[in-house]
Design a protein around this nucleic acid. Structure first.
Length: 419
RNA sequence: GUGAGUGUGGCGAAGGGGUUAACGCACCGGAUUGUGAUUCCGGCAUACGUGGGUUCGAUUCCCAUCACUCACCCCA
């Protein structure tokens, strides 16, 4: 136990952390292009925030939260998703006072107590964007496009946007009621899962892989949510599609698309990659800010699953990831050589040259092998002769050519070839 | 939460109720008084997930447990 990480967590080790940095950089760079600013909220919040914000009946709240009581008897919960905390911060800090729409993004760990499997950890990571204060369908389209842009920058291929509208507080309850009325009388003919869905989220029955459930839906003539939108929602949804078309963003309408969180209204979408599950999703949440105690404010956002994006990326780029280069490896032939090496290293590093040496008293041969393993561009050799003369033998590992020179010249040469 | 599979050194992997548990990779030293490959020689490691049980004896069989993997549910 002592040497075992908690279930569903993972160590991101050197060699992989570089990929994470690349992903985070793409998120930051792209968000900057769209004028989104970063927000960092606590990793835990009052339990009530998630219970009310995410929705009491969602799986997340019912069985997946990491909830604990602190020493002051407060019930706190490790955030299972990012939006609730951002909404809380928006309200608490009165960002609704802004004359403009507020556009923010976040990156960080989330926690859900689930059974781990591929692309699903108990501590996992999401990046996400949120926009507050605009109902304009153009905002929906822009947010959808933003993540596509991020994924494209990273080189993720084959991303499809699945798009739907799940209606609003007016038309969705009507549709739900309609579905229940049609299906309840024949509920015993639904599969076990769908009987549960009928209670919790009838929309999801459209998603069932069971043929008999699909047949039953047809038999009772259950309409999809997309067919049951109120005029306002229908107009908004058309607006979103129009904006996406204008932006040349491809999407696929999926009238069965449902999102798991209660707060979504109108536009809902997912980013899917053939052969994988969804790697991100989002939606509009016009009631959420008010739900959390702020003024009636429309909002919209998406979240991307970082583990999943990296998984797809790893799968799509089969070629080995190139080890980052080390500019210089300093070989000390003997004790005085290693002492000189310590000195040369500091000079090199202060000149912006990345450099390292051996700390295991290994042979010169072994030190060269290490330089090779580390993908070093140059090796500087410091032996008896060099130390005595205040010089260094600089070897270019790619060409094999080795020249005796002063320390300053050696550093200069490594610097010049470094750009 | 439900179901299935797996667990042998740093990594990969064989084996099998009985004294020293193969092999490969990696790593270290030497052949080459201070140079990256190949080859050869030598070296290396608290390795049978954990706890019980059966047995004269278990890493091997049984049970439990933990972890990992996959699917379902659900989701990112």
């Amino acid at each position: 136990m002592l040497t075992q990480r908690p279930r569903g967590t993972s160590d991101i080790l050197p060699g992989v952390s570089e990929q994470w940095q690349r992903l985070e950089q793409a998120v930051r760079d792209t968000c900057r292009l769209y004028n989104f600013k970063e927000i960092r909220t606590p990793v835990f919040e009052h339990t009530e925030l998630f219970a009310r914000g995410v929705g009491e009946t969602t799986d997340i709240v019912e069985k997946e939260m990491y909830t604990f009581t602190d020493r002051g008897d407060r019930s706190l919960t490790l955030r299972p998703e990012g939006t609730a905390g951002v909404v809380r911060a928006y309200v608490e800090n009165k960002l609704f006072g802004s004359p403009d729409a507020v556009k923010m993004y976040y990156v960080g760990p989330m926690f859900r107590y689930e059974k781990p499997q591929k692309g699903r950890d108990r501590q996992f990571h999401q990046y996400g964007c949120e926009v507050f204060g605009s109902e304009d369908p153009g905002v929906d389209a822009e947010v959808i496009a933003l993540n596509l842009h991020i994924l494209d920058n990273l080189g993720v291929k084959g991303v499809t946007v699945e798009l739907n509208s799940v209606g609003c507080s007016v038309c969705r309850p009507l549709h739900k009621k309609d579905m229940i009325e049609r299906l309840l009388p024949v509920a015993d003919r639904l599969c076990k899962d769908c009987q549960a869905r009928l209670e919790k989220n009838p929309l999801r029955i459209f998603d069932c892989k069971n043929e008999s459930c699909q047949a039953l839906l047809k038999e009772v003539g259950a309409p999809t949510i997309a067919e049951s939108l109120c005029d306002e929602c229908q107009t908004h949804f058309s607006g979103v599609q129009g904006a996406l078309d204008a932006m040349d963003v491809d999407y696929r309408l999926n009238p069965y698309l449902v999102r798991g969180l209660d707060y979504y209204t109108r536009t809902a979408w997912e980013y899917v990659v053939e052969g994988f599950s969804s790697i991100g999703g989002g939606g509009r949440y016009n009631g959420l800010v008010a739900q959390v105690g702020g003024p009636e404010t429309p909002g919209i956002g998406f979240a991307g699953g970082m583990e999943r994006v990296l998984m797809v990326l790893a799968e799509q780029s089969k070629e080995a990831v190139e080890l980052p280069l080390l500019d210089l490896y300093v070989v000390g032939v003997d004790a005085s050589g290693q002492l000189a090496a310590a000195k040369l290293l500091q000079q090199a590093r202060k000149s912006g040259v990345s450099a390292d040496r051996d700390y295991l008293q290994r042979s010169v041969k072994a030190q060269f092998k290490a330089a090779d393993r580390l993908n070093a561009r140059y090796v500087a050799v410091l032996g008896e002769t060099e130390v005595a003369q205040g010089r260094v033998a600089l070897k270019n590992l790619a060409t094999g050519e080795q020249v005796d020179m002063t320390w300053a010249d050696a550093i200069l040469q490594v610097q010049q070839r470094g750009v």
